[in-house]
């Protein structure tokens, strides 16, 4: 089991961090949002996760990698509160921590429009009126390239558009932490890169912490930030991408 190495790696790689819009020392100053302490989870006799220790800080962008069956989805579900770990503790670093998730199966309502799906995220604690929500929604729709499809039904969209809608829905309520389970699996590299850039923008400007699970090696290679690698339920690497 390898402990979280974000602090150890930070000093050595601050120049790279600055390149991606993060000031030196920003990560160290960010408070801990969520801490997993010796978390394990098993499905019957199968151990999906074993003794995971992990800290997620404010404004942190974490890439989660690992082969199929390594425990990525389980870890994401535990972070998002979807699953309760069979062993270990989860400590919330702040009150009213709000976590949203981009599910692997997206969980969009197929027979209704994109707009109605996105309205699910009209959180009154964030938006004072429907108008305010719609303004943000339209702006985000244009950024994601979904604006023209607002009135189309989900079941008429291609996989890539569906994924964008799911990501938008997760971003709209202004979460503290966004957990995304392979959100670009239906996208080509260029589209995935664009989406990644948008999320990086939200991460840096809107201080949304993001945990992104991906198989996309090219994307991971371009990534600079914290990276976690899982193998057979064990956290085998944790630290800055360049360091790893």
């Amino acid at each position: 089991m390898i402990k979280d190495q974000s602090f150890a790696s930070l000093g050595a790689h601050h120049s790279r961090a600055r390149f991606f819009g993060q000031e030196q020392g920003q990560l160290a100053a960010s408070p801990v949002l969520l801490e997993l302490v010796n978390v394990s989870h098993s499905y019957g006799k199968i151990d999906a996760l074993k003794g995971i220790n992990l800290q997620i800080r404010g404004s942190e962008f974490i890439f989660l990698t690992g082969a199929s069956g390594a425990g990525k989805s389980t870890l994401l579900n535990i972070i998002s509160g979807e699953l309760r770990p069979t062993f270990g503790n989860i400590v919330n670093g702040r009150e009213n921590l709000f976590v949203t998730q981009v599910f692997q199966d997206l969980k969009l309502i197929e027979n209704v429009s994109v707009l109605d799906n996105l309205r699910m995220a009209n959180d009154p604690t964030i938006y004072r009126s429907d108008r305010e929500f719609m303004n943000v929604l339209i702006e985000m729709g244009k950024v994601f390239g979904v604006y023209d499809a607002f009135n189309r039904r989900i079941n008429s969209l291609n996989g890539g558009l569906k994924q964008k809608v799911a990501i938008m829905r997760a971003l709209l309520p202004g979460p503290n932490l966004l957990v995304a389970d392979e959100p670009t699996s239906s996208l080509d590299f260029e589209s995935a890169k664009k989406l990644f850039d948008v999320l990086t923008y939200y991460n840096s400007k809107r201080t949304v912490s993001i945990v992104w699970a991906s198989h996309n090696r090219e994307l991971v290679r371009k990534f600079s930030g914290k990276m976690i690698h899982l193998e057979k339920g064990l956290l085998v690497h944790s630290g800055h991408a360049c360091f790893i």
Partner: peptide
């Protein structure tokens, strides 16, 4: 339909 929508409301709204 209701359960699915309620679940999404609870996931994406406070």
């Amino acid at each position: 339909l209701l359960v699915r929508s309620i679940y999404l409301i609870e996931r994406y709204q406070r």
